[in-house]
Amino acid sequence: MKEQIEEMKTKALDAIAKAENEKQLEEVRVTYLGKKGELTAILRGMGALSPEERPVVGSQVNVVRDTLESKIKEKEEQFKQEELNRKLKEETIDITLPATKVKRGSKHPMNRIIEEVEDLFVSMGYDVVDGPELETDEYCFERLNLPKGHPARDMQDSFYVTTEYLLRTQTSAVQARVMMKNEEKTPIRVICPGKVYRRDDDATHSHQFGQVEGLVIDKDISLADLKGTLEVFVKKMLGENSVLRFRPSYFPFTEPSYEVDVSCFKCGGKGCNLCKQTGWIEILGSGMVHPNVLKMNGYDPEKYTGFAFGTGLDRLAMFKYGITDIRLLYQNDIRFLKQFDRMD
């Protein structure tokens, strides 16, 4: 009996191994393990065995059955895998064919820069404020310590609409607006990005351009605070390796006043055509808010000090994106605009 079972097992295993597809495997399963299968027949015939033999044969049959079942299962898995592999192969596509376009629009480089500047200063607790572009002489000049006839007015030839209204020549106009609007005369921490206008149009100047103004008024604000703030600003915008140079200068609305140069980001300060061989590029005007400006706009210069700064945004955008001609920023060639569609 034992030999008979062993022989059957060998035959069955051989048949499983030889099965070429699921159908043949199923036939093998039916032949041995089916209701009318050979192994089932042996189990059925167990009643004829002696009580001593029965458990021995029973357990032998069970072992063989388990072996066969697991072998069949293994073989089944193999067939499934083969079938899947075949299907996957069939479904293989040419991934080098062109993509289906899912293009979105793009943000103008100037607004990309403005948003970057805004995000930086907002993270330092500044409020972003807006002011009129068609401004009054009072806010654009007079309240900034630039009375009519002041020689510094020549620095910025203006577009007047009437003797009182003009297109603002500087975002500094917003300084006075913010100070006047703050009736409690509490500390101020703002930036104001926006458009400004000057009678100037050549290869490097546009009559309309972008500027951002910063203003901080509080107790004990110092030049060292201005320096530290501008260092953070310039390094974030133009790279951590940037070196700043402060040069005393003159603006009627600040005293002391400084122009700020940054080490040339093209040559690193060695001298090139971008920095006109000087190694430096002028990027900012800044200074401590002039006490007359504080006074004129309701702040007590004995109690408060402040700093202000302003920088051109066109140049920042040009530096950042390697734009060589300022006119590209205002030409709005769709092929230019569409390039600004990715993160920085």
Partner: peptide, 19 residues
């Protein structure tokens, strides 16, 4: 002026705002 050490102003922390 380049001998003056820069620092960030010691102002109260507050949330900045924008449009």
């Amino acid at each position: 002026v380049n001998n003056i050490e820069g620092r960030l102003p010691a102002l109260p922390i507050k949330a900045g705002s924008y449009d």
